[in-house]
């Protein structure tokens, strides 16, 4: 089996102007599967390319371009539908961003990076430490608060009610006229009904206490995860009323291909990507860059 290393370069070197063959299609399929795009999404994408090939002869270069266009379209569509190409807090008003996801995906780290980004962009920010469950979760988010120079609203009592902390934090944000309130939540697997209900409760508190706020509910998705990512997106969309997705750990060799299934099946725009453990390792999502990286050599 060909490793992914150099496949696209090889393809272009060897077959650049030659017509795309069924064998090359198989190898492109392999590339997508190995990037966690998933069997169904890969079938759809490769079938579109196959259909196109039936209509006209494409060389490898054109075939690849068509493939990239297809992939870009999938992740761009939800962004287009949202009406916002770039996610930013609105100035001079309260914005609340709720960060949710399964265990260990990078929620707290992403929140730390977002706090820093907000400050660098001239917004005032506040952090609500609403993960009261994980060992040392509050200490961890406090380190991020210090690093980014953003205050943290917390309750040190283990298993304190997360909704109560969010309640306090919204009060503090309003009285201090904070523009961006970032809410860290405990990791939870989407199959845990009681924990998902707890999240719904937090989401409801936000809507009730700050009906005027611009609320974003962001699902953090780990690029190393496989097909379970789709099930995560579906469940969290229901419980936390998701408005977008952040993909983390793209500095590794995983490509985060499950994002294509998530985009096409949940209509959630991908807003940021995380590519490292440092405070500045966060970028706005760019479909072109994402697709290039998906097919790039490693």
């Amino acid at each position: 089996e060909k490793t992914r290393k150099g496949f696209v370069t090889d393809l272009l070197d060897k077959f650049g102007d030659d017509p795309l063959t069924p064998e090359t299609l198989d190898e492109l399929e392999t590339l997508l599967l190995r990037s966690d795009v998933g069997v169904d999404a890969t079938d759809q994408i490769i079938n579109a390319l196959r259909k196109r090939l039936n209509e006209e002869v494409l060389d490898s270069k054109e075939g690849l371009r068509f493939l990239k266009e297809q992939l870009c379209k999938i992740v761009d569509q939800p962004i287009k539908n949202s009406g916002k190409t770039l996610l930013m807090p609105s100035e001079n008003s309260l914005n609340i961003w709720l960060i949710v996801g399964v265990n260990g995906v990078g929620k707290t780290t992403t929140l730390g990076k977002l706090a820093n980004l907000a400050l660098r962009s001239g917004f005032s920010a506040l952090i609500a430490a609403a993960d009261t469950f994980r060992a040392a979760a509050v200490e961890q988010v406090k380190v991020w608060g210090e690093r980014s120079g953003v205050s943290v609203v917390a309750n040190e009592t283990p298993n304190a009610d997360p909704a109560a902390i969010v309640f306090d934090a919204i009060g503090a944000a309003k009285s201090k006229k904070i523009e961006l309130l970032l809410v860290d939540t405990a990791g939870r697997l989407q199959t845990k009904n009681n924990l998902m209900e707890e999240l719904t409760k937090v989401r409801k508190i936000i809507d009730r206490l700050a009906p005027e706020a611009n609320v974003e509910s962001l699902l953090v998705l780990d690029a190393t995860q496989g097909q379970n990512g789709l099930s995560q997106a579906m469940s969290f969309a229901k419980s936390a009323n998701l408005t977008g997705v952040v993909i983390t750990k793209l500095d590794g060799s995983a490509r985060g291909g499950v994002a294509f299934a998530v985009s096409s099946q949940t209509n959630l725009p991908i807003r940021f990507i995380g590519a490292g453990e440092g405070i500045r390792d966060l970028r706005p999502f760019n479909s072109f860059e994402f697709v290039e990286a998906l097919l790039a050599d490693s």
Binding site: G112, A135, R147, E277
Partner: peptide, 16 residues
């Protein structure tokens, strides 16, 4: 020695 509060986390679990 890298992850913020990694030592606190292990300490907390150790106590538990």
């Amino acid at each position: 020695v890298y992850r913020p509060a990694a030592i606190d986390q292990l300490n907390t679990l150790g106590k538990q």
